[in-house]
Nucleic acid binder design. Structure first.
Lengths: 217, 217
DNA sequence: AAATCTGCTTGATATTTGTCAAGCGAGCTT
DNA sequence: AAGCTCGCTTGACAAATATCAAGCAGATTT
């Protein structure tokens, strides 16, 4: 009994180690110089590993979003629920992106979003206070945050532009090109919601698209 | 002749002074402590005043966006032009917001956006290098940038959510509540583009809305 | 194995929005 | 004052998308 417990604990620690290592790799990825062990220790201390099982919630409508989480592995979604009970997916979260409702996180206001996991997902979680401190003390980490923010800006703008200028079919093709991972991993009904259309319409669009591909070959 | 020139120059300097003062006011607005004169001098030095006349371009598709501009007064639009020649407005810029294509600004890639002025607009312009230096030297300015970024994040997310969950009419009503200034200042055809609909549809929606208001009184 | 559920597809029809064409009033130019 | 552009509206019709209802194959539960 004791022995099995220790074994599980060991596995857990190894897994946690791997999670931090991926964060380290991503930090190094964005800068020319490599983050030192001492500096990375500061980063480690600011984050807590967390695993969210499929369908579990990270955030629920009405809560204040106290955490900002770096996704190490897995897929999440951030969505609202309207009066009719329909879900509208604002954002998918995958590896190497933040997941959080920044508005609620910064202003401590209740969120209107839910965030849950589409598959078992590994997170590194931090608070606003720790984040602010860490950004002030670790140059490399701060740089990573800036890069992530720019990535986020760019993605949002791209999405808005697609929504106002493209038809549903064009938006789907655009998504296929930009985030092919989404198409592979995410159930079609959720992709439809993300694209702002109904599942039925997406089904017809896909049929359309595959037919066009076949005839052009 | 000499005299008139000096008079014009004086007017210009006074105007420039007022522009900087507004930036100072906005910086102070976002923090608990007030920015000192020495610190604000650093801010002043990083920016150049610029006036863009109505319909003039600040940025054109294909250029690299080398500047980030703080709007002191006026209205701008950031938009794409599709193959059919239709314009799609991604964003309006008004007082106390940045205007720039951040993606191009950061990565030095050619932009796909045009930015022009809807009315004579006063800007304080800076470069990425100056911005980075200034953020490192002025705590108050850095805080303002963070606040602006959060404002931008929040607005983008809000917009995306509106696009995927609301009908055209709901989006218009939402815009009326969120940015009534837009409705007052901006020609209807451009509002339509911003909402992702045609001018004709917006015209019909407005008719609809005013009829409903009348009957409910 | 039967029953249920989930994710997706398909068809018929309704609703929303776009397209094209015309018109109208206000302000501007000549 | 005549003519013109601009911003907006309106009508008739077309296209895109939603809605409702049904069905179906594969996975999961009982």
């Amino acid at each position: 009994m004791h022995f099995l417990f220790l074994l599980e604990l060991k596995k857990l620690l190894i897994n946690h180690h791997l999670m931090y290592e991926q964060l380290r790799a991503y930090i190094n990825n964005g800068t020319s110089s490599i983050i030192s062990d001492e500096e990375f220790k500061l980063v480690e201390q600011a984050f807590t590993p967390k695993i969210i099982k499929k369908k579990q919630f990270l955030l629920h409508e009405g809560m204040v979003c106290k955490y900002m989480s770096f996704i190490v592995k897995g897929t999440m979604r951030q969505y609202t629920i309207d009066q009719k009970g329909n879900e509208h997916i604002v954002r998918f979260g995958i590896e190497n992106w933040w997941i959080s409702d920044r508005d609620s996180f910064i202003n401590l206001t209740p969120t209107k979003y839910c965030i849950d996991a589409l598959e078992d997902t590994e997170l590194l979680v931090t608070t606003n206070e720790k984040l602010i401190n860490l950004r002030a003390t670790s140059v490399h980490f701060n740089k990573m945050c800036q890069n992530l923010d720019e990535k986020h800006f760019s993605a949002s703008q791209e999405r808005i532009q697609a929504m106002i200028s493209y038809t549903a079919e064009e938006r789907f093709l655009h998504l296929m090109n930009t985030y092919p991972v989404f198409i592979q991993r995410i159930p079609q009904a959720m992709l439809a919601s993300y694209l702002g259309i109904t599942p039925e319409t997406l089904s017809r669009i896909r049929k359309q698209v595959t037919l066009q591909n076949k005839s052009s070959r």
